[in-house]
Amino acid sequence: MSSVSVSRLSKSYTLIKALDNVSFEVQKGELFGIVGPDGAGKTTLFRLLTTLILPDSGSAVVEDFDVVKDYASVRRIIGYMPGKFSLYQDLTVEENLNFFATVFNTTVKENYHLIEDIYKHIEPFKTRRAGKLSGGMKQKLALSCALIHKPKVLFLDEPTTGVDPVSRKEFWEMLLKLKSQGITIIVSTPYMDEARLCDRIALTQNGKFLRIDSPENIIASYQQKLWSVTADNMHGLLNDLRSCPYVKSSFSFGASYHVTMVESATAAMLDEYLRAKGYGDIEIGEIQPTVEDCFMLMLKEDEQ
């Protein structure tokens, strides 16, 4: 059963086509990730689905309600955490939470079980003004406020942007717990490593959805052999890999380079080539691609 259904949705601003004919379905209880860089149209999509702006064409339905015709009903059953911190800075933590509960005609007590795991981290600071909270605490408060009316669908626009790796991990653990309670979650992120934690992801660029599938299927569809290459002089190695006739693509990936080669080439041939160039400690091993490898391959194909 689908919770969110988007059909041929487009939205343009004066100069840019922010969202270009996008269609997808999100199932009830699914954790759906929208992965892509700034300018991919992520925020525009969220603003359309949360009824804050109107589409130029196409339609979208959230839990059987049309985002244009039934906007008031949509608003009642969704939770939205915008990319920019949008709570009341001069209200305290507790006042913000009470405010959002009251607006939705409920109480903090009634749905406390939903936010308990998240809210307990900030409860010791409940008399502090929201504007005075740290980034991590603001994020937890914003999520608590988006959840307090027990929404059926939760929209999270880049909740982890600018957040350090440890806090990002904690945030995703919270999302997975919420998912287990049956809430449909649509979350956007520029971080490719987070894609792996979603049931399905859409890889997006310049207002278009390049691909929608599970992370496993996206990785499985990577049709080429991928090699990890390291040697003693890593700085020089990238240029020599790029000018090597066997190499199709070469990208830095943390401590190693990820390399694809032409059909006829083998690891032994590359090893010999690099050795002739004077490299030592050469290690070449076949590896499993990540979502980031897949995304880069798609971007490259898109460029050509």
């Binding site: 860089p37 700034d38 942007t161 660029q205 990238l238 830095s252 980031e292 995304f295 971007l299 490259k300």
Partner: peptide, 13 residues
């Protein structure tokens, strides 16, 4: 922050 993975790598170059 916020740029695609290819652009991010080009920036490091």
């Amino acid at each position: 922050g916020g740029v695609d993975p290819i652009t991010r790598r080009r920036f490091w170059e």
